[in-house]
């Protein structure tokens, strides 16, 4: 059987959990096997009462102390207990912050193969072949496991969050475990402020800066570009914030703000998975980058292969010329 692991400490219907289930269902079809969704530290009633939760599989609730808050030590021990009991061939975990913390650790504990950031799966001779990104996200590769057991982490957004064959009448079973934490003391979560409202949430047009703009000084060009559009805001990729060129409040991405403006102009942004997760749903995406192989072009609607700063200077001059032209025309009329 295939074991999917629910995202810890979030509602039962969480998208990351459902995406992991979708991937597990695809693997089970290849293996002619079944799926069980395991959820640690969640209470029974939440799953029963979660309205509209449809699952193509039964649920096992792993119950025990030390599971109230996510922690790798306790979760891995508890899930290992269930794995010994159910003997799954694949364990599928969402590639979220917590899932990415747990999955490789669990894989080593149970001597399984670890295949991460999986974006697709297909069958070959009754075994799964996984697709995942590689080489800076510019290429992808197909990999097969060389172990009897495999832990798979799933790229957020790659699989459907709505498994179609679901049923509301899934069976829920309890699996009590006894886990004592010896080296980890969870202290709960902490809210952090990212500073001022940067206008990203309500902007119709976002001009975003990546490492490829070359230096901090070139940000003024991007600001000038943004000023051509009403209701615009300046965004950034994570490295630009890491360099201190812009504050983290302007970071767009999985670990930053998620935006979907009418127009997103990515300047010198290569398009890491991290960044794409935060802006992929924008209505129109324009990318300017000097690297033709940059992943951002695969998600853009229009692209220009050019040095960013050079191109924006030329573009700004052109716009000025056109506007002056218009002004002259209207005077003549």
């Amino acid at each position: 059987m295939i074991l999917a692991i629910a995202e810890p400490s979030v509602p039962a219907s969480d998208a990351a959990t459902m995406e992991a289930v979708s991937c597990a269902v695809q693997i089970s079809a290849i293996r002619s096997s079944t799926v069980i969704l395991a959820s640690a530290g969640k209470d029974f009633e939440e799953f029963r009462n979660a309205e509209g939760v449809r699952l193509p599989c039964d649920v096992v609730l792993i119950e025990g102390q030390s599971l109230a808050h996510y922690n790798a030590e306790g979760y891995a021990a508890a899930i290992t207990g269930l794995i010994d009991h159910l003997n799954p061939t694949e364990i599928v975990i969402a590639g979220t912050s917590r899932g990415g913390d747990l999955a490789p650790y669990l894989a080593m504990r149970i001597s399984a193969a670890y295949i991460s950031v999986v974006t697709g799966v297909r069958g070959e001779g009754g075994s799964p072949v996984y697709t995942r990104p590689c080489w800076h996200g510019k290429m992808e590769m197909d990999v097969v496991s060389r172990r009897e057991r495999t832990v798979v982490s799933v790229q957020p957004g790659a699989f459907s969050a709505a498994p179609l064959v679901g049923d509301e009448r899934f069976h829920v079973e309890r699996f009590p475990v006894s886990v004592a934490l010896t080296a980890t003391e969870p202290e709960g979560t902490l809210a952090v402020s990212q500073g001022d409202d940067t206008g990203l949430a309500n902007a119709e047009v976002i001009v975003s800066a990546g490492r490829g703009i070359g230096n901090r000084e070139n940000l003024s060009l991007l600001m000038e570009l943004a000023s051509l559009f009403p209701r615009s805001a300046l965004g950034a990729s994570r490295p630009v914030c890491d360099y201190g060129w812009l504050p983290y409040g302007r970071q767009v991405g999985q670990t930053g703000r998620r935006v979907s403006p009418r127009l997103y102009i990515a300047c010198g942004i290569s398009g890491s998975m991290q960044h794409l997760a935060g802006m992929r749903s924008s209505a129109h995406i324009v990318a300017v980058n000097n690297d033709r192989d940059a992943p951002i072009f695969r998600h853009a609607h229009a692209g220009v292969v050019e040095d960013c700063a050079t191109f924006i200077r030329v573009f700004l001059d052109l716009v000025k010329e056109r506007e002056n032209g218009k002004a002259t025309q209207s005077e003549e009329i």
Binding site: A113, Y114, I115, M141, V144
Partner: peptide
Amino acid sequence: APDQEIVAVRKPRAGTGFMEI
């Protein structure tokens, strides 16, 4: 020993509706 094996690498498919200017 290797826990997995690469069977192929390739360039990912471009999205539909992309235009290079």
